[in-house]
Amino acid sequence: MSPELVLFLQTLVSGILIGFVFSLLSVGLTLIFGVMDIVNFAHGEHLMLAMYATFWMWTLWGIDPLFSLPVVALLLFILGVITYRLLIRYVLDAPMLAQIFVTFGLMVFLRNLAQVLWSEDYRRIGDTLLSGRIELFGIFIGRPQLFASLGAVITTGLLYFFLKRTRTGWALEATAEDKEVAGLMGINTERMFALAWGLGLASVGVAGALLATFNPIFPEVGTVFVLVTFVAVALGGFGSVPGAFIAGIIIGIVQVLGGFLWEPRFKTVLIYAIYLGVVFIRPQGLLGRR
């Protein structure tokens, strides 16, 4: 292959790989929104907590992220349920601004808590079972990134299967459709909401554990990823799991390839241009329902 082609393909691969990470992050956010119309502003901070959980299990007990991943997902699931029970439950029927400020406040709280507990230092997980890179026809693929992509596909697949093919999943979708009617049909909507928060955060837990293998960990790490996640959720259609998944990949490719072919400083502009285009032409997003 000619060097130009290799460079181009390498860039495309890099874009797809980071896109999968965006996808995984967006899926959790869109699930919570889809079920209860609440945006979790603390999403980035939940990611940060998942990364720290992975980091500490690795540092203190030497548990490889590959094995701590299910534990982190479970911890985040529990955190999601607790968050719902202690905070969100009380603002379900409150005005939108009140809902925004609850999760916004949670974001500020968690970020500052992390600064107090773990300081501003940057941490990094050293060599893990996932470290290294693969070379294919002169194209480099980071193994952590590759595993993160696999994790994204599997997690999204499981979530989608759960929503579409299980009774509990149907109950969740019914609750999202109409809370009152679902309640009348004998669905425990309280439990469904808690489940949505649990699942939403568990997928962030998976993302955090995988991301921690190749990204530095620090209290503000959430801010780096969260904005692009919001865009992916809106682009994919609020509440649509497959939509968020596809949108994440699109954003990854556009960002990396666009930055390479054009000027890197305009790469975020490209993402928002696409986003604006979608808002004007198809306000419900790629796969969203009206």
Binding site: L7, Q10, T11, S14, G15, I18, T223, V224, F225, V228, G252, Q255, V256, L257, G258, G259, F260, P264, R265, K267, T268
Partner: peptide, 15 residues
């Protein structure tokens, strides 16, 4: 030139 708060810099490095 690039944005300091970036989640990914592969396009810059490819450039």
């Amino acid at each position: 030139p690039y944005e300091a708060k970036a989640s990914d810099v592969s396009s810059e490095v490819q450039k």
